[in-house]
């Protein structure tokens, strides 16, 4: 056990921690997006999907525990690394220019912090329903929690939909560097596959951003509407 802690604290070991926990979080993002895209299909599929998830509490909590562990390790490790990295250059350069580094790679902390703040708001809004307690009162004809109306009502507000779009674009920027970086940290890149890995990371990023952004945009454009009987406040 001690060797594992020492490994996680070493320079390369900490990168492995970032890479593996990041992979878990990306896998979750893909699953989360695919599930929620059912909002485009209407009230029935999304509410049925939500009810299905809540009907398996054991499975739900196993997945949630894994995600919480990955997120905590990812954040704690990144904060520690940022602190160490800042300490490694106590006197800043008067002039410093990037050479091969991308904008995304130099701003991982900022994009990560914005995504974290967004995550907290997202949980307050939809998981704990504390920002809009009235959401808990929404039920459909079968008596299930009306997740569909909750999402449509939320994204009908331009400010909230806009904030989601901005946060998702920053998440995309974070992932653009992160996915390719994962392969490098785990020692899986070689010049032969570098272009393929770059292309795959861009593709995964694009799919995640476009897929997630499509939901608030479709609702704002009126393509996805409230079901009959639910009245917007």
């Amino acid at each position: 056990m001690r060797w594992l802690v020492n490994l996680a604290l070493s320079s390369i070991g900490a990168k492995v921690v970032m890479a593996l926990t990041g992979l878990v979080l990306v896998a979750f993002l893909v699953g989360h997006m695919v599930g929620n895209l059912q909002v485009l299909g209407g009230q029935e599929p999304l509410n049925a999907y939500a009810a299905f998830l809540h009907s398996k509490p054991a499975l739900l909590w196993v997945v949630r525990s894994g995600l919480i562990l990955a997120a905590v390790l990812h954040i704690v490790s990144s904060v520690r690394l940022t602190w160490l990295n800042n300490a490694a250059r106590p006197v800043a350069y008067a002039v410093k220019r990037p050479i091969l580094s991308s904008f995304a790679s130099r701003n991982m902390l900022v994009t990560g912090l914005v995504v974290f703040a967004f995550l907290v708001y997202h949980l307050l809004q939809f998981t704990w329903r504390l920002t809009n307690p009235a959401f808990s009162q929404l039920h459909d004809a079968q008596g299930r929690l009306d997740v569909y109306s909750m999402v449509v009502l939320s994204f009908s507000e331009r400010l909230i939909a806009g904030a989601y779009v901005v946060a998702l674009l920053l998440l995309g920027l974070h992932l653009w560097h992160a996915i390719g970086s994962t392969f490098q940290s785990l020692g899986l890149t070689t010049p032969k596959y570098r272009r393929l890995i770059d292309a795959v990371s861009l593709l995964v990023c694009a799919v995640l951003v476009v897929g997630n952004v499509s939901m608030p945009v479709a609702i704002l454009m009126g393509l996805v509407q409230l079901p009959a009987g639910v009245i917007a406040p």
Binding site: I12, L100, S101, Q184
Partner: peptide
């Protein structure tokens, strides 16, 4: 400090050492 795979090192290296060696060392 710790590597965050930004690759300014490769761009600055007067001998153009490739980032592949970092992946191999990892």
């Amino acid at each position: 400090g710790n590597c965050t795979n930004t690759y300014d090192c490769e761009g600055a290296c007067p001998k153009q050492i490739n980032r592949r060696f970092i992946a191999e060392m990892n």
